[in-house]
Design a protein around this nucleic acid. Structure first.
Lengths: 238, 238
DNA sequence: GTCTATATACCGATAGAC
DNA sequence: GTCTATCGGTATATAGAC
């Protein structure tokens, strides 16, 4: 799957999610027309992410959000009951999209090597199109309440587990040489996150998301494919 | 060098730096007695880092800082002229310490392999003792003004360059197999940063800084030492 | 050098007109 | 469904007593 194809799939999921959020919030939200609500919700989320990523969510005043989104203070409060609820809605929306998109990208029937490559690429593509959300999530997790923080950690661990599973499968088939699948998954995830957090660095060096994906895949593969392949082992498919 | 030895070296450097800061700020600072000033500065920095790392620097009110540090609002403003200046002072102090400690840890006379191991370990030890500052720096860089942001990026690139230099030296001596030293250094740095940013994850798994250092060293080495070592190459010292 | 008291501005949130 | 006007609270920063 190329980046452009991926982009289309993810955009569709994005709309799905705005509808889902509206459906769930219909009780607490004052707006009743779905078309209006979904349009404004997407608008608010976008404006909030843009402003928050400049100086942080706490520093974003609702007056600034009102200005950027084009909605009045009063109108904003038709979509959430407090600034904190807005924070939670944004976090939820991103987590949902991450889960939805990632799980669709990996084919459990293919070889561990192919799955690993697909997972790395899909994760990078995802951070690329949801760059603002990932950065936001990264920076604002500590400002959530206990319950939301727990969800955020679970989401992180779930993504990591995708890599743990692939690595363990590769271990069982003797195609990966990994001493510690959990730690290996952690550092792989750290490399992927860097693409989002240190975006300025890669932009300055004119490295594209595909350049970075190719490099990370190469780096990880040479770390775990083992430098002394034992040709006598069975199940060797890579 | 063990972690405990490292700790002592770094603590000494920390005091040096508080004196340096006092010397430089003597003009703008109202306090004239060095002993008082250094003691309170260290106190203020520590309180500010603790509070900032809970909800972010912007969310930390100076009233809260006053409460935690034990100094009154008025007294605080004897040490800085604005909240933003405090932010800059904290960033400066950490950058200075990083530079000072890291440069003392790597022996340019040793082999690339040893230098790489030392650099990884030193960086992790440093993030361990300056955990609060690194987290702070990570989270608050975007809230700095343009000039300070530039300094922050330069500091990041300088640390990365330490690894680039080691990798290139290893390349020249044909002991490392690296396709792109800059990108390799970037991902190594990403792994090191993860130790600080995802501290909760490693704490929960009861992984010590030495466990993590050993793992990262092993992972990086198996990625770059090359899986088909060519025994006929000269200068091979690892 | 450190304190308390206060000036001024802006925050999140809401009430009520349209 | 969206607006404007305004509430009470709290923020940074400072003035002046001690």
């Amino acid at each position: 799957m190329t980046f452009d194809e991926f982009k289309q799939v993810a955009t569709l999921s994005m709309e799905e999610i705005c509808h889902e959020i509206f459906a769930e919030k219909q009780a607490s939200i004052k707006i009743k027309k779905e078309a209006v609500a979904v349009k404004n919700l997407a608008n608010i989320f976008h404006a909030a992410l843009t402003l928050s990523n400049e100086r942080g969510f706490q520093s974003m005043s609702l007056r600034a959000l009102s200005r950027t989104s084009g909605l009045s203070m009063g109108a904003l409060y038709s979509y959430f009951t407090s600034k904190e609820e807005l924070l939670e809605m944004i976090q939820n929306q991103g987590r949902r999209l991450t889960r939805k998109v990632l799980s669709r990208q990996i084919d459990p029937q293919s070889t561990p090597g192919a799955m690993l490559r697909d997972a790395i690429r899909a994760h990078l593509y995802l951070t690329e199109i949801m760059q603002k959300w990932f950065y936001f999530s990264y920076m604002e997790t500590k400002n959530l309440d206990k319950n939301q923080q727990k969800k955020s950690m679970e989401s992180e661990l779930a993504t990591e587990q995708v890599f743990v599973d692939i690595l363990e499968q590769g271990l069982r088939q003797h195609v990966f040489h990994v001493t510690d699948p959990v730690l290996s998954a952690s550092v792989i995830k750290a490399m992927l996150q860097d693409w989002d957090v240190k975006r300025w660095k890669y932009a300055r060096r004119q490295i594209s998301v595909d350049d970075y994906a190719d490099f990370v895949i190469g780096f990880v593969e040479s770390a775990i494919l083992g430098r002394n392949p034992e040709p006598d082992l069975p199940n060797k498919s890579i």
